[in-house]
Design a binder for these strands. Structure first.
Lengths: 153, 153
DNA sequence: CCTCGATCATTCGTATACAAATGATCTCTC
DNA sequence: GAGAGATCATTTGTATACGAATGATCGAGG
């Protein structure tokens, strides 16, 4: 018995499981494509998508604890730790003791970090547009609305 | 000058770059949510999404070289190597020499691998449905159509 | 046949991703 | 103000992900 006959055999229905049509596979491929566009389009800033997300969030917030930055960018504490370490190593953010909480440290952007975000913002906008290029404007609105619900449900 | 004023200053337009609205961030969150649903729902098979993708593809194809399996599942050679190693270690697929090409090896499912796919297929289908649960049937069709174009453009 | 570009698989290095465990500290409640 | 449960950050271990380099082999053209 071959795989495509399995659902029929099990449920007396036509086969429906094609990997290429599964939403998980498509989400992964679309995310993969975006990451490739990002790395190609980010230019001299040489940031990864997650480094950009963390940096732009620190600049927007002004300062934040590491765990809070992770929550804002959807990274768990173990993951944000490495991202912050690399941004610190490049002199884009700083870390100082939090006088109000001795467990926590306060992250803040450096002048270089702020300048890099300002210089890179047009590229980031272009990356989002290039990612959405397969869709026309009306389709983009619909897609983003549905994707938002898929992401935060 | 604060970040939210940058686009206005640069382009004389209202600020538009909010990380939470960027398509890359939303794709990542949606993929993240799917992975969590998968790991929760895959049950006793205890497979990762990529292990499932590789296994189900080997079962469907009957046999395939490692690089070909990687192309079919969108994994590069370095990545598929580890996935195949773990599936072999669990006795779900086998590897043999390719008589027609001494560079390549032939991967094939074991009886246990085929049986695991058969037993797990209902869970995999349920996972796809649970992932799409935030959308009603009409929205699902639209979303999948647009996502397909975003993935393969 | 012979060589040159392509392909197969591996390895190394770097960067997410997340579960789980840990130690320090905070906060809430009694 | 003391203990319990929550939170901050780190570390360890496993699993993708991919660029780049490598060595072996293949296939096409001359």
């Amino acid at each position: 018995m071959v795989l495509k006959d399995l659902p029929r055999a099990l449920h007396h229905q036509p086969s429906t499981y094609a990997l290429e049509d599964q939403v998980g596979h498509l989400l992964r491929r679309a995310h993969q494509r975006h990451a490739a566009i990002f790395l190609e389009g980010i230019g001299p800033a040489a940031l990864t998508p997650m480094q950009w997300a963390a940096l732009v969030t620190v600049v927007r917030e002004g300062k934040a604890s590491q765990n809070r930055l992770g929550r804002l960018t959807a990274m768990d504490p173990a993951t944000i730790q490495g991202v912050v370490r690399r941004l610190r190593a490049r002199g884009l953010i700083t870390r100082s003791a939090d006088p109000a909480d001795r467990r926590a440290s306060v992250l803040a952007p450096t002048e270089a970090g702020i300048a890099l975000v300002e210089a890179t913002l047009p590229a980031a906008i272009a990356i989002s547009e290039a990612t959405l290029a397969p869709l026309d404007p009306a389709e983009r609105r619909i897609f983003l609305k549905l994707l938002q619900r898929m992401a935060f449900a």
